[in-house]
């Protein structure tokens, strides 16, 4: 099995294989498309499941090691599932000088997780991002695409409590 170079990993069941095939056919024959493929795959699953990456490797002939190398290089890619609400906390310079660190500490304490982690109930994932570009509103965070600006530790906690309350 191994001598054909197929790595023998292609048989694991992949969820939504039709949609995955659709993504792959979009980039068929276009060299250098790995990053775009991974972006679309992440768009499909919200993260990059191992089985899906193995499937991409099998279909495109791009070696698994290379795919894994690219997936771990770029911060956009996630190899673990994320929570229902992703909190993007801006780490830009303006946010830093206006107290982003204190906001991070407040969020971590409120949710009981560290940066990059997901809460046990699967509700929240906290991710630091380079700059959201809303410098005049600093410090800012983005939850599910909505920007919350001019944060204080207290305000950040209240926002999280509101989101939590809306889930109950």
């Amino acid at each position: 099995m191994a001598c054909c170079g197929c790595n023998g990993k292609g048989n694991v069941a992949v969820k939504d294989v039709d949609k995955l095939d659709e993504i792959l056919s979009k980039y068929e024959g276009i060299k250098g498309s790995l990053i775009s493929i991974l972006q679309d795959v992440q768009g499909l699953y919200e993260y990059l499941p191992e089985e899906a990456l193995n499937y991409v490797s099998e279909k495109t002939g791009i070696q698994r090691a290379k795919i894994y190398g690219v997936a771990t290089f770029y911060t956009q890619f996630r190899l673990d599932p994320v929570g229902k609400h992703v909190i993007l906390l801006c780490q830009g310079t303006a946010c830093h000088v206006n107290g982003a660190k204190a906001i991070e500490e407040a969020i971590c304490e409120e949710l009981g997780i560290s940066e990059g982690e997901t809460t046990e109930d699967g509700l929240f994932t906290l991710t630091n991002v380079a700059c959201l570009g809303c410098c005049s509103l600093s410090p800012v965070m983005m939850i599910d695409g909505e920007v919350f600006g001019k944060l204080t530790p207290k305000k950040a906690r209240e926002i999280l409590k509101e989101v939590k309350a809306s889930e109950e």
């Binding site: 191994a2 790595n7 990456l53 698994r64 090691a65 894994y68 771990t72 290089f73």
Partner: peptide, 30 residues
């Protein structure tokens, strides 16, 4: 021309590794 290993992660945390950190074996390399 096997490309069984590649760089993983980046910066100070970069390593050379196998896909998904599997142990080296005939499954992934020759």
């Amino acid at each position: 021309v096997t490309h069984a290993i590649d760089f993983v992660d980046r910066g100070f945390g970069a390593t050379v590794g196998t896909p998904f950190n599997e142990p080296i074996s005939y499954e992934i390399c020759r």
